[in-house]
């Protein structure tokens, strides 16, 4: 084989490996503008989830994505995670807007709703108001909370200060068997109603 041919094949192999590498990272959501909610096989009122999170049966794309956006997530029999990044009108959740989050009791031992920024991190504020959970809400069947960058006059509050574009994760720990089996039927998906938005900076 001539030197020219060796250089050609080496270049082809290198280029092919780079393309394969990039396509794998893109298809599993590790590069590109994908949110944690971009990949799912369940969508209930824009709350999305993947039945195979944490499981050995998860396909390699799901496994790579969960490793990036939800490392150490539990299997669905112990916890179900739903993520939502849009309000009831289908628009991206963002810090400059105020929302009313409302929901009902869930069929699980414990549940919570937590706010994360676009890097899947808790936003860097010191408001100590990044989630609401079943213990906060108590035994009431129906509940509401305000999502805003500043605290409301009263009631439950989830702070979006320093979050930019954000999403919410609904955790359901020790879900009841029928919720695990038929989430489309038994999940009570919280609503997210936009109240107002400040002008974009």
């Amino acid at each position: 084989m001539s030197t020219k041919a060796i250089v050609l094949y080496a270049s082809v192999v290198l280029f092919g490996l780079l393309v394969g590498n990039a396509s794998a990272l893109w298809m599993s959501g590790l590069i590109g503008k994908f949110s944690a909610a971009s990949f799912a096989n369940i969508n209930i009122a824009n709350w999305t989830s993947d039945r195979s999170i944490g499981a050995v049966s998860a396909n390699p794309y799901t496994r790579a994505r969960v490793a990036r956006h939800g490392l150490l997530a539990l299997v669905k029999e112990e916890a179900i995670y739903f993520t939502r990044s849009v309000d009831d009108s289908g628009e991206q959740l963002q810090e400059r807007c105020t929302y009313v989050l409302s929901g009902k009791r869930q069929k699980a031992f414990w549940w919570s709703v937590t706010l994360y920024d676009s890097e899947s991190r808790l936003p860097m504020n010191d408001d100590l108001a990044l989630s609401i959970d079943a213990t906060t809400i108590g035994e009431r069947g129906e509940w509401t909370a305000i999502i805003a960058p500043t605290p409301p006059a009263g009631g439950h509050w989830i702070s979006s200060r320093a979050a930019g574009r954000f999403d919410l994760t609904l955790r359901l720990y020790q879900p009841e068997a029928d919720l695990v089996e038929f989430p489309e039927v038994w999940l009570a998906p919280p609503r997210i109603q936009k109240i107002k938005c400040e002008a974009a900076a």
Partner: peptide, 13 residues
């Protein structure tokens, strides 16, 4: 090469 790069990356990530 593309397939090798794709699946090795996917497995190793």
């Amino acid at each position: 090469s593309i397939l090798t790069g794709h699946f090795v990356t996917l497995h190793m990530t």
